[in-house]
Amino acid sequence: MRYQTSRQWMITHEWMVKPMQQKEWIEKQGILVWLSEVFSALGTGLYLIAIFVDSWWGALAGYLIVMLLKLPLHLIYLGKPLRFWRTMPPFSGAWRTSWIARGVVFTVLFSMFGFAQLITSYILGSDFLASGQAHNMVYFADVILKVVAGFFVILTGIYCGFMMSYCKSVPFWNTGILPIVILNAGIADGLALVMGIGLLAGGVGVYGPEYFHNLEYASRIVLGVNAVLLGTYLMNASYQSSTAELSVKELLVGRVAIIFWLGIVLFGIIMPLAISFISMFTGDVTTILLVAAIIGHTAGAFALKYCILKVGIYKPILPKSLVF
């Protein structure tokens, strides 16, 4: 009921004796953090896969998701967005300890190298340059840029996880698996999105539609890993501490259980996997099923971040545990 939860920052008798849910990053304006994390994972995953499979449109889409969705959403969330520059060197040396500051640095570096890479790839992909010295130089630059931008996009994709796993205050997050779960989920989503882009563009990068099979294969593996990782993460959390166990309970049978089972498990993992297996036997993927898998993946991405943020529960402050 509303009145019981509305003003907990004020009322002594309800405050912090019981495990308290973190709210700043999920409720009210906190929704922006969630969306920003979702787009962070989708954008970086897409970009990463896209540069692997040489999908220029995919890379562009991934880049734009990061630059036009992830960044602005997080910016709007800030209490003082116009002071954004303070996070960056040389204005601050906070990157030495703060994962948000590091994340900003990664994102900025990615934005620069990624942009350059998009240009070089575009040049290579167009008929602008005939083969020759210049072409080779651009090709060489493109490879280097892909490596560098790929490096930073991985960091950009994984820093959100580290940002959360650093918080000892929230035992459920405070584990090394979390960043990997998040990165891996991003890669799985990236695979799906690349296929989506491929559908639109009529082929993935230089390859034809038949390449989907390879992607499907990769997707199966990544999804499998994803399921195992998630399972390990939850198992680990429920053994780690009573507060983290509570988070897991909230996730599996509590208030967010519907989102967890429907969003993450069904849409995010089972459905894409099933589609993927169907394609394995039929040998061909229908467009509709592929679209369904992509939607499922994306829904899964939204659900995953939502659930993880939502069940972030602070460890109760008081030393004694038996509280009514």
């Binding site: 209490g79 003082k80 303070r86 703060s98 650093y166 918080c167 000892k168 205050s169």
Partner: peptide
Amino acid sequence: IGCRYCVIACP
């Protein structure tokens, strides 16, 4: 800048 990271991180 109001990122609330500290709000979350303070045990």
